[in-house]
Computed example of a mutant assay.
Amino acid sequence: MLIYGLKNCDTCRKALKALPNARLVDVRDDGIGKEVLARAWAEFGAALLNTRSTTWRGLDEAERARDPLDLIAGHPALMKRPLIEAGGEFYLGWTPDTRRALGVD
């Protein structure tokens, strides 16, 4: 099981603590593969892009108009976190639905 997120993200830390067999992939330090991003985008669409983040608010209109996958690759903090890959499935966020699907709680 992989958790794509940021090592200093509180939500990612909560997920990692609750899923002791998971490994954190810090998208800022390690990056995230284009194929993983493409699969996640195909499944979650615009929900994958965190438009409430400080990073998003700091972008100008021209930057915001770029391809969302290029934006996330260039600014990893723009990805909604955590993105969890388990058993070939993706889960986005640390919601009650995600926790239930992963057998946590």
Rank of each mutant, 00 (worst) to 15 (best):
residue 104 V to W: 04
residue 54 T to C: 02
residue 40 A to Q: 07
residue 3 I to L: 09
residue 21 N to P: 05
residue 80 K to S: 14
residue 17 K to V: 11
residue 13 R to M: 11
residue 59 L to Y: 02
residue 54 T to S: 09
residue 55 T to W: 05
residue 13 R to H: 10
residue 57 R to G: 02
residue 91 Y to E: 07
residue 73 A to M: 11
residue 48 L to Q: 11
residue 78 L to Q: 11
residue 84 I to V: 14
residue 5 G to L: 08
residue 70 D to C: 08
residue 87 G to S: 07
residue 49 L to R: 07
residue 78 L to W: 15
residue 48 L to D: 15
residue 93 G to M: 04
residue 36 V to S: 00
residue 79 M to L: 14
residue 86 A to M: 03
residue 71 L to V: 15
residue 56 W to H: 01
residue 55 T to M: 02
residue 71 L to P: 13
residue 34 K to N: 09
residue 6 L to K: 00
residue 57 R to K: 12
residue 55 T to N: 02
residue 95 T to V: 10
residue 58 G to K: 12
residue 31 G to E: 07
residue 17 K to R: 15
residue 92 L to D: 11
residue 63 E to D: 02
residue 47 A to R: 14
residue 50 N to D: 15
residue 88 G to P: 03
residue 68 P to V: 12
residue 54 T to M: 04
residue 44 F to Q: 14
residue 62 A to H: 05
residue 103 G to S: 11
residue 28 R to G: 01
residue 1 M to Q: 10
residue 6 L to F: 03
residue 65 A to D: 08
residue 58 G to N: 11
residue 29 D to E: 14
residue 3 I to Q: 07
residue 96 P to C: 07
residue 44 F to D: 12
residue 75 H to C: 08
residue 57 R to I: 00
residue 93 G to V: 01
residue 88 G to S: 02
residue 23 R to A: 15
residue 93 G to T: 04
residue 24 L to I: 06
residue 54 T to D: 01
residue 14 K to G: 02
residue 83 L to Q: 04
residue 19 L to Q: 09
residue 31 G to I: 06
residue 20 P to L: 12
residue 64 R to V: 03
residue 64 R to Y: 03
residue 31 G to N: 06
residue 16 L to H: 09
residue 101 A to P: 05
residue 62 A to S: 08
residue 11 T to P: 08
residue 96 P to N: 12
residue 29 D to Q: 15
residue 51 T to P: 00
residue 74 G to V: 01
residue 2 L to V: 00
residue 40 A to Y: 06
residue 95 T to W: 10
residue 3 I to F: 06
residue 96 P to H: 00
residue 52 R to I: 03
residue 26 D to M: 04
residue 90 F to Q: 05
residue 35 E to M: 03
residue 95 T to E: 10
residue 46 A to W: 10
residue 82 P to S: 09
residue 62 A to Q: 07
residue 8 N to C: 07
residue 55 T to D: 03
